[in-house]
């Protein structure tokens, strides 16, 4: 597709059309929604699958607590279910989800089955960390890729600097470049060298 060059008139017309937008900007800025933070809000959705036949609990209390540490409270506290329900007395969500978890444990569900049931209803936001699959893999790997790339860049940079030093030394050796000589006795020059290398300055 070939675009015709924009005429001056067309440009002015577009600029004029943009003016109302610019004038409306402050209003748009003011119209920003207020924060969604609402710790006492109701984000709970019941998750109560049928108990398995002849069910007996597969998890003890400690294992339930550990499982709940991997589940995020849907309120904006950013805490896990265990920590939230044992801390935030105003949150109604984490105790409710805890009750569902206990019901599923008593219904014979294993930890991964409980996680699957909750994820089906709440989505992956119920997990405290992204899953290691699909797009979420980016979350886990990008930091290491970035740091690895940075490490390689530094190694390359250091090699370049090292090569510069070798070239400079070679040029000094064959007389291409004469180093500036400081005048003084050996002792004075040694003190000067120490002063220049002094870390504390």
């Amino acid at each position: 597709m070939i675009h015709a060059p924009l005429s001056r008139r067309a440009l002015l017309a577009r600029a004029a059309a943009a003016v109302p937008l610019l004038m409306a900007a402050p209003a748009l800025l003011r119209a920003q929604p207020s924060s969604t933070v609402n710790m006492a809000g109701d984000f709970y959705i019941p998750v109560r699958p049928r108990p398995k036949p002849d069910a007996s609990p597969l998890l003890d209390e400690e294992q339930v607590n550990t499982l709940e540490r991997t589940l995020a409270c849907p309120c904006p506290c950013t805490l896990d279910i265990y920590t939230c329900r044992t801390t935030d007395v105003t949150c109604t969500n984490s105790p409710a989800i805890h009750r569902d978890v206990v019901l599923m444990v008593n219904g014979g569900y294993a930890a991964d089955e409980i996680v699957a049931e909750l994820t089906n209803v709440y989505g992956e936001r119920i997990l405290m960390a992204p899953t290691k699959s699909g797009f979420n893999l980016v979350a886990w790997f990008l930091p290491f890729v970035a740091i690895g790339t940075g490490g390689l860049a530094i190694a390359t940079l250091l090699r370049t600097w090292r090569r510069n030093a070798i070239e400079a030394a070679a040029m000094r050796a064959d007389g291409t470049v004469r180093p500036i000589r400081a005048h003084g006795t050996d002792e004075e020059l040694a003190r000067l060298d120490a002063a220049l290398r002094d870390d504390s300055r």
Binding site: T78, M128, A129, A139
Partner: peptide, 11 residues
């Protein structure tokens, strides 16, 4: 993805 993933302490 259209879904807000939680990134918490474990990550």
């Amino acid at each position: 993805q259209g879904e807000k993933i939680t990134v918490g302490i474990p990550f």
